[in-house]
């Protein structure tokens, strides 16, 4: 028990991967790359949830598994989002013959 990794390490890791994901969203031009970056952001939040669940003290009326349940549901949601996202990217690819987000600029003003 004395050799436990401290909570802050997990939080630094989560914050770093969240920042990497955010940078990816802002800088990647390929739509699939943006999708991957979004996944990294969701998983960074998941790491946070698990770390807080393991190290934190749950409040009085809270069940013992809240953080884990949240992480499990977020994994499910992420999967659904990827399915929809890939579908939408394919739809756009068929029309533009490209997956570059900067080319989809028909709407503006």
């Amino acid at each position: 028990m004395t050799q436990q990794i401290p909570l802050t390490w997990f939080l630094y890791f989560a914050a770093a991967s969240f920042a990497i994901g955010l940078m990816g969203v802002l800088m990647r031009r390929n739509a699939i790359g943006v999708l991957m970056a979004i996944e990294i952001m969701l998983n960074a939040a998941n790491v946070n949830f698990i770390a807080f669940w393991r190290y934190g003290t749950p409040s009085a009326s809270e069940g013992p598994l809240t953080g884990v349940m949240m992480a499990l549901f977020v994994v499910t949601i992420a999967a659904a989002e990827v399915a929809v996202g890939v579908g939408l990217i394919l739809l756009c690819y068929r029309r533009w013959r490209s997956a570059d987000v900067e080319e989809f600029d028909g709407l503006s003003g």
Partner: peptide, 11 residues
């Protein structure tokens, strides 16, 4: 939300 969970221990 994850930070709020960490601060309060509840959802």
């Amino acid at each position: 939300l994850s930070l709020i969970y960490g601060l309060t221990g509840s959802l």
